[in-house]
């Protein structure tokens, strides 16, 4: 459905010196700096898949999405969506895709929300019956009727996002690109958005590519994740796989009476790989992150208790958040 091959996008940025004088000088210098936003990324997504496209801020997610939606041409490499090259046949590609950019809107700002839908109906030539059915479906999941006759500029963020998602799905696109569709939403609205995304995938068989910083979105929706960092692909595979590999990690937190004592604690690391046991301290707290298949809790507790006066102990499971954070910080090698 989507094929991305050796995709690279380099932006040309005019070199700027700081300050007013630098700006003035910049006007006359022809110096450019190349900024590589996406570098040699390849992946393939099958029809009906739901893929989480994740990475830290500035990793190049939006840039990739822009290329796949046909509004940005890559510097090199290629990409096809549903057999179409998006940046060469933008209009044809547009018929097949639905797009939500979380921080933008495609709604008509000064008109009633309902007007947006009737305009989109004409733009995409949606037949009357299909239009009614889809609207009914979207309304049932996203509760649009509550604000259907309000001018778009008066909608709250959550209402606007729901409406934007509906607007992207009205023509039942085969591929849906969602760039941070849940940004700034409360738990209930998020739940509605996820429900809608899940249902268009299940009932219409839409292929979904989703970027988000909320990993619970991913956990709930995407069996597969593609992770990029600094424009490069760092992981492409199942979410379960990552969880299996790193979900074995547990964390222990000790409250120690004396901060000085905490700093002196040393655990014996004989025969353990570096990523299986890690420890650090913050003030009166001493943290140990360890692989529970390789090391028992009791042993660690015993070692720590022998070296310091411990006031409290707590145990935390490592969530997907921590795993991804670790990967972003290059702590966990993949």
């Amino acid at each position: 459905m989507i094929e991305v091959k050796h995709l690279t996008k380099t932006f040309k940025l005019k070199k700027k010196q700081p300050g007013l004088w630098g700006t003035v000088r910049g006007l006359f210098s022809g110096e450019y700096e190349a900024k590589c936003a996406v570098e040699d990324i390849s992946f393939a997504i099958r029809r009906g898949e739901m893929v989480g496209y994740i990475g830290a801020n500035g990793a190049g997610k939006s840039t990739t999405i822009k290329i796949m939606t046909g509004i940005l041409a890559p510097s090199s490499g290629s990409c096809t969506v549903n057999g179409t090259v998006p940046y060469e046949n933008r209009q044809q590609n547009a018929r097949n895709i639905g797009v939500v950019f979380g921080q933008r809107t495609q709604l008509w700002w000064d008109l009633q929300l309902s007007e947006t839908f009737s305009i989109l109906k004409e733009i995409y030539n949606v037949p009357a019956k299909a239009y009614r059915d889809t609207m009914e479906f979207l309304d049932s999941v996203l509760d649009l009727h509550e604000f259907m006759t309000n001018p778009v500029r008066t909608l709250s963020l959550g209402q606007r996002m729901r409406a934007d998602l509906a607007a992207a799905l009205l023509h039942r696109p085969a591929v849906v690109f969602l760039d941070e569709p849940t940004i700034g939403l409360d738990v209930l609205v998020k739940e509605k958005m996820r429900q809608a995304i899940k249902e268009i995938n299940q009932t219409f068989g839409a292929t979904v590519v989703l970027t988000t910083h909320d990993l619970s979105d991913i956990e709930e929706l995407c069996p597969r994740i593609i992770m990029i960092d600094h424009g490069r692909l760092v992981y492409d595979g199942s979410l379960q796989n990552i969880k299996d590999r790193y979900g074995a990690m547990k964390m222990l937190k000790f409250e120690v009476k004396e901060a000085g004592e905490a700093r002196k604690i040393r655990l014996s690391t004989a025969g353990l790989a570096e990523q299986d046991l890690k420890s650090w301290c913050e003030g009166h707290s001493y943290f140990v992150s360890f692989n529970r298949h390789k090391l028992g809790i009791a042993e660690i507790v015993a070692q720590v208790m022998a070296q310091a006066e411990v006031l409290d102990i707590s145990i935390a499971e490592t969530g997907i958040e921590d795993i991804v954070k670790g990967i972003y910080r290059n702590e966990l090698a993949l």
Binding site: K66, T69, G70, I71, R90, Q91, Q92, A94, R95, I97, V99, F101, R104, T105, Q106, I123, Y124
Partner: peptide
């Protein structure tokens, strides 16, 4: 961007 993602 929001106009260029439409088939128009």
């Amino acid at each position: 961007a929001m106009n260029l993602i439409k088939p128009i």
